[in-house]
């Protein structure tokens, strides 16, 4: 299948800016999928979006849209939609005329453009506000109109540059639901920049992890979380359990002891990683110990909302385990942590 958008060895250097903002980035986004570009500030996420949109020229590499090279095509001729962090609605136009802007720019009459815009305004549940000025909208409504405006242009790919980062948690949740509904109804190809791992998990099929202008991993949400390509990806995805050791014969040897791991794990030095959300914890030293069980002692407990995070010592290693808020765990307790083989992953070091 031809990628909706493909980046080939994209490099970007800004004047007086070293190292380069992007270094040889290759990325393929399949039609109808949603990919989240995830990374810390300054990692190059927005630069990728702006290069795809044509608002920045790459220093090297090519951009293919549906197999067509658009590297030298003007932004207005790429048929790429971009929703910015701020809605940037045109203040001199009503809500419906903002959504109808692309058709008006394409030469359609005001009536035709408005007729075509209405379904998109309905889709974002603002069909009643078409005649309003944009100044009377709330932040969440403005961003809904911005999304409807971008969709009404019927772009080949929709780029979202942290569009919900300025909204509060409730509004952000509503926008995630809206995006999922849009995906169900229109199946657009979406590339979305975010620094929020939870947001990426909710709305995207795949995650592309960026750091220092380099694409570290592009994979399904589950694999990026549980099968990180490197320790950097594990760290960026919030992984807190990294245990150095050596793999010999399908067993990882470390301060935890001998832990069986997937057969695909490379022989030699490797770090055992697992998600603190995936590990289990039961009070006391279970006997007989179930598969993947390790006896541990609680070192500290920190409550976070309805959950709590326990730091436990196993052998010479300190591990993080998330436990339900209803479980009574205190420092010094003897516990058993359960590490099923399927949550363990070895990153070669």
């Amino acid at each position: 299948m031809t990628s909706a958008i493909a980046l080939r060895q994209i490099t970007k250097r800004f004047i007086d800016h070293r190292p380069p903002a992007l270094s040889g980035v290759n990325l393929d986004v399949l039609p109808g999928t949603c990919t989240a570009l995830l990374g810390p500030s300054g990692s190059g996420k927005s630069t990728i979006l702006r290069i795809i949109a044509g608002l920045e020229d790459p220093s090297g590499g090519r951009i293919l849209l549906g197999g067509r090279d658009i590297t030298d095509v003007l932004p207005e001729k790429r048929n790429v939609g971009l929703v910015f962090q701020r809605p940037l609605l045109f203040p001199h136009l009503s809500v419906i005329d903002n959504v109808a802007f692309a058709d008006r720019a394409a030469g359609q009459t005001r009536r035709q453009a408005r007729d075509r815009a209405r379904p998109y305004l309905d889709m974002v549940q603002l069909g009643d506000l078409g005649d309003r000025g944009v100044g009377s909208l709330s932040g969440g409504q403005e961003q809904r109109v911005a999304i409807a405006r971008a969709l009404a242009a019927q772009p080949t790919i929709l780029l979202l540059d942290e569009p919900f980062s300025a909204l509060d948690a409730t509004l952000r949740h509503e926008m995630h639901e809206l995006l999922l509904r849009i995906r169900r109804e229109l199946s657009p190809t979406i590339l979305m920049v975010t620094h929020d791992r939870d947001e990426a998990t909710v709305v995207a099929d795949r995650i592309a992890v960026l750091e220092n202008g380099q694409l570290l991993q592009h994979d399904t949400v589950d694999r990026v979380y549980h099968r990180p390509a490197s320790l950097d990806v594990a760290r960026l995805m919030g992984g807190e359990n990294v245990v150095s050791g050596v793999v010999r014969g399908g067993v990882h040897h470390s301060g935890l002891g001998a832990v069986p791991v997937d057969e695909s794990a490379e022989e030699g030095p490797g770090a055992l990683v697992f998600r603190h959300e995936s590990a289990g914890l039961i009070p006391g030293h279970a006997s007989p110990a179930p598969a993947g069980a390790l006896h541990a002692t609680v070192v500290a407990v920190i409550r976070s909302g309805l959950r709590q995070r326990a730091t436990v010592r196993v052998g010479t290693e300190l591990l993080q385990v998330e436990v339900p808020g209803t479980m009574t765990v205190t420092a010094g307790d003897a516990v058993t942590i359960i590490l099923p083989e399927q949550i363990l992953w070895v990153v070669a070091t």
Binding site: L55, L74, P75, L82, F90
Partner: peptide, 13 residues
């Protein structure tokens, strides 16, 4: 000036 990029992304020459 801030509205130039959104307009360009909507296909306006």
């Amino acid at each position: 000036a801030q509205f130039d990029e959104p307009a360009a992304m909507l296909g306006a020459s």
